[in-house]
Computed example of a mutant assay.
Amino acid sequence: MAAQDYLDLLERRVLRRSVTLSALGVEEVAWTETDARLVVAALQDSHWAILGGDVLRIGANAPEYTYDSWHSGPRNGETPREFVERTHTETLQYIDAYPNRESHLYTLVCSRVV
């Protein structure tokens, strides 16, 4: 199963608002703060963990990488469900703590955990 399959869980209205990063030579999408929160909410009852992501500044012509990122890995003794839930919480905490978060985009690196 490809990592992009998590996109299949999203409502069309959210998916349409994703920002493609193809102009940067990357086959990936990014999300505004608001839409990133919607993506995390859509993944809540799934087996999709958010392993981390990158932050991009909304530029005049194209998004620009800030080289800020976060990551989450499994912990010893953690169940798959606990891992998935923790990654969602850590993603939201990172976005909440990011300065000027409204003027940035966030990529989400997701992996299906069973």
Rank of each mutant, 00 (worst) to 15 (best):
V114D: 15
S46D: 03
R75N: 13
D5C: 12
A41E: 14
A36P: 05
E102T: 13
A30S: 06
Q4I: 00
R17G: 01
S111F: 11
V29M: 09
A97S: 14
L38A: 14
L15M: 07
Y106L: 07
A3D: 12
L108I: 00
L38Q: 09
A3K: 07
Y98M: 10
L92H: 02
S111P: 12
E82F: 03
T91F: 03
G25E: 06
V14I: 14
L10P: 00
T20W: 01
L15A: 10
E11I: 00
E27Q: 15
T66D: 09
L105A: 02
S72C: 11
H71C: 13
V113Y: 13
E64M: 09
W48I: 01
R81S: 08
A30P: 07
V40G: 00
H104E: 03
D45Y: 04
A23P: 05
R37M: 10
G73L: 04
W70G: 00
I50R: 05
V19A: 02
R112K: 15
H47R: 15
I95H: 06
H71V: 03
R112F: 13
H71S: 15
P63R: 08
Y94I: 03
V29Q: 09
N61T: 07
C110A: 15
C110Y: 06
I50H: 06
Q4N: 13
W70L: 07
